[in-house]
Design a binder for these strands. Structure first.
Lengths: 133, 133
DNA sequence: CTTGACCTTCCTGCTACTGGAAGCCCTATC
DNA sequence: GATAGGGCTTCCAGTAGCAGGAAGGTCAAG
């Protein structure tokens, strides 16, 4: 398979796949013309990474997950620890965003949004006191 | 004020403030020794930007907010539109994170997390079907 | 006079790609 | 055989928002 085909099948951009090769996630063969040649295992790995990325795992976490996936001696606890840590990070992000959302929604609601210059949003931003911890 | 003092007062890193100068957010004077000299208005602007950053506004949005803040002919509607758009982006992010969280929490729960290799998390990631839309 | 804290500029690196330029390869058509 | 197109290659630059570090100037205290 050439890069275009594997890209389509894996649901990834060809550029992305070249990048993944550059950072050592995949190691496709090369044909006599210099083209990358991907096999089924490569496709499988790329699809795996795509799924993990969609769940928000970083590239390094994807690398670790791939290693675990290919290590048939792994303990599922290693995978679970990695995933649980990522889950916790997601929770932190959600919490932070919700904090922002609370303040912001309040400000937006308070702002009349007309042609007059008076604006509680700007007032808040220029306030001495902190907006959130 | 030197950069160290203004950094502490504004709650920002000195490096960050130099960066903000580089991208044109602030324009401190220079003393005869080449040191940056910040006045109260600079401190005020930096604190403003910090507050906006804490609410998740991008640097470009902060720039726009600063411009509106300093434009006493502004309409509050301009500010409100900007803030409402940002609020919508936050909502999108929260939604995406919650989707990830749903799938991930489920997987983590299903994984026994023991010494055996069998792992539903890896099974899911290597699945042909998409994990989320 | 020296020490240490503070300041300066410049350069690199981080994440995870994306876009573009210059050029080769392959197939099809005229 | 020439040409057109699409796909492939490498390399370089840029994105956001800084952080870290090197090399060196400045300033106040002892």
């Amino acid at each position: 398979m050439n890069i275009g085909q594997v890209a389509e099948k894996a649901g990834l951009n060809a550029k992305t796949i070249r990048y993944y090769e550059e950072i050592g996630l995949v190691h496709p063969d090369r044909g006599p013309n210099g083209y990358r040649e991907f096999g089924e295992p490569d496709l499988h790995k790329l699809a795996f990474v795509r799924q993990a990325r969609q769940l928000g795992f970083s590239i390094d976490e994807c690398r670790a997950l791939l290693n675990l996936y290919e290590d048939h001696q792994r303990s599922s606890s290693d995978v679970k620890i990695l995933a649980a840590r990522h889950l916790a990070e997601i929770d932190v992000k959600i919490t932070e965003l919700r904090k922002m959302r609370l303040v912001l929604a309040d400000l937006v609601e308070q702002c009349s949004g007309d042609e007059r210059p008076n604006c509680p949003i700007l007032d808040k931003l220029s306030d001495r006191k902190d907006v959130a911890s």
